[in-house]
Design a protein around this nucleic acid. Structure first.
Lengths: 227, 227
DNA sequence: GTCTATATCCGGATAGAC
DNA sequence: GTCTATCCGGATATAGAC
């Protein structure tokens, strides 16, 4: 509302660079794309690219945020309408895979820096805590008010599902099968198992074991923000 | 024993470079150590270092092989003498963690390239298949002839334990607790759970689920050599 | 505040001379 | 086998145009 006019520049450049960069990443991979490539393809100088993104990694962080919002959007309908836990979880998982299916090469390249908590682009880093919190939230929402899941177990199960989803994505990006069918089978199989096991853990026979599992996770502070 | 004399050159340079490089990696991390640093500290030129190791990554591969052999050696005694499954598994896991406890910074840096199957240094790559096969073998040996584990389930359980051990190492390298106590607790807790659950899966109540799990893993070809 | 142009540093990797 | 010279690309710095 201040001096914002028809000037072509501004935040628009940032979006433009991001789009071009992601496109190049998809075509040539992360390492195969240079900042000089990105700047040239966007019709800007190298300096301008660095003006908007302090590093190549920063572009990846922006990509995370964009995908996370897209996933939340894509899941919203399913979360509101689907009546049972199993179908909600399936919808959420498959929505994510659908969304990422053309980005497997890029994701493999990014994988190089996704697991050390001190790497900014790590799924465990402080820089990605916001995205991580939102991602876990989708799974907690998917559990919803399901009767089979005890209320105090829901946050933990949400985090466990998020962890499972990371493992499935790892399989997915390396999946050489046609259209990654194997990943789809693995997703459905894992979810079936979980939805059968979850109520069992509430049964008297396995009750003590549930306490043991809970204690184990909580002692380890697993998936809790580390910083 | 052949023509190995006072000549400084030959295969000895390779071992020398490897030792120096690992020492620098431990002190300054992987990225913090340049090939020029390594060459200089080894008293050689940059070109000579590249003559023995085609890349910085290649040094990491040599490190894997060395650690794998050390772990097998450290586990041998326990595997031969300990009478029960639980203590053998504990010995193997803790031996590995003991071995790596001064390399956490290095391992975090290496983590950047450990999960994409097309990265040479990935735990799933063709280049590391030999190390991987040996590592899984240690767990299969640890299961041994335990009566509670059905014979046809042993190879699968061996692979599952290897996968668990990867997850535990991931936790370990990011573990900020004093002397990584949390990792130790997590190791013991996981193994306790597994040793309690394993026989349950053979019970009539959960029998069908065991078939489901087996089918799931085999369909996915999980942990099978991909290439 | 947005951008160009250019020069420079740094480190992984390669080529070719000896 | 070992060296020096060189390339390449990420990243920084600077000076200035609008």
């Amino acid at each position: 509302m201040t001096t914002r006019k028809r000037r072509p520049s501004g935040e628009a450049s940032r979006e433009h660079i991001l789009s071009i960069a992601l496109q190049l990443f998809r075509e040539k991979g992360f390492d195969g794309t240079t900042m000089r490539d990105i700047a040239a393809a966007a019709g800007l100088s190298l300096g301008a690219a660095y003006y908007w993104f302090p590093s190549k990694e920063a572009i990846v962080l922006a990509y995370y945020a964009r995908q996370q919002d897209a996933h939340a959007e894509a899941s919203r309908g399913a979360l509101e309408t689907l009546p049972d836990l199993r179908s909600r979880l399936g919808a959420v998982m498959h929505a994510k895979i659908d969304m990422l299916k053309d980005d497997r090469k890029l994701l493999r390249a990014i994988l190089r820096s996704t697991l050390g908590a001190d790497e900014p682009t790590s799924v465990f880093s402080a820089e990605t805590s916001d995205v991580r919190r939102k991602a876990i939230g989708i799974f907690v929402d998917a559990i919803g008010k399901d009767d089979a899941i005890p209320e105090d177990a829901r946050p933990l199960l949400g985090q466990a599902l998020w962890a499972l989803h990371l493992g499935l994505l790892l399989y997915f990006v390396n999946d050489a099968s046609e259209d990654q069918v194997k990943t789809r089978v693995l997703v459905d199989g894992s979810l079936d198992l979980i939805c059968k096991l979850a109520p069992l853990l509430a049964s008297p026979m396995l009750g003590p074991m549930r306490a043991e599992i809970t204690a184990l996770f909580e002692n380890a502070g697993l998936f809790a923000a580390k910083k």
